[in-house]
Design a protein around this nucleic acid. Structure first.
Lengths: 118, 118
DNA sequence: CAGAATCCGTTACGATACTG
DNA sequence: CAGTATCGTAACGGATTCTG
């Protein structure tokens, strides 16, 4: 009996798609770090490379291009020699900062929890 | 000149590791959904399967085992026939809810932004 | 400096079939 | 019901080399 799924658990369908929607951008090891390190202002390619642990040029380039395509970051070429390229968050990109903030907070709790159980 | 990276951008090193730390758990297409759907209370295996879009049994099982190993969810076997297994968030697991909430909010903004640009 | 190109390993995920 | 086993695909990511 009760082969059917229990429903109505006091929480209305909060459009779970929005989760996946946003996670698709946040996903991967580096995309969130890129946004995080751009939150204080524009940053150049190699600066980001050094900011973010040990990300390879290839992957960083891929992520940046992807984020640019999604309207999360902008790419501005400075006509200098040698060439310099600045990346910055768009207004949409800024929206991610609070979420990443919350994630970082959880990260700290994780560390704290691990220290206790040792 | 200025071969060196620009530093001191008004933001102190906020331990970026915490980000990666937490993302390692959140990562993937399904882990966040699992936590999200458990936030209102315990849920059985097949219930989760139906809650979460079209996740395969294999992957769901993998994620659940992983989350259990990390202390994010608990697994309780009810001695009934047929057997029933309940998954629930631990106290640590509850910590993720606010972060996921923030992520969902961003997801909605993404949708809104996309509607405008069409 | 800012990348593109190439090669290659690892992992997430899906589909199907099978078990206790 | 709650999984496990097996197979196969694709995306992610690292290392190295090369270019405008």
């Amino acid at each position: 009996m009760s082969l059917k799924v229990r429903k109505n658990r006091s929480i209305p369908p909060p459009e779970p798609c929005a989760l996946t929607e946003c996670m698709a951008i946040i996903a991967g090891a580096w995309a969130p770090n890129v946004i995080w390190h751009l939150r204080a202002g524009p940053r150049r390619f190699n600066e980001l490379r050094l900011d973010i642990p040990p990300v390879s040029a290839k992957v960083l380039s891929q992520r940046l291009k992807e984020l640019e395509g999604r309207g999360v970051v902008t790419r501005t070429i400075q006509p200098t020699t040698p060439p310099s390229v600045e990346y910055a968050l768009t207004r949409l990109g800024q929206e991610f900062v609070p979420a990443l903030d919350a994630i970082v907070k959880v990260g700290h709790k994780l560390k704290a929890a691990r220290r206790k159980e040792l």
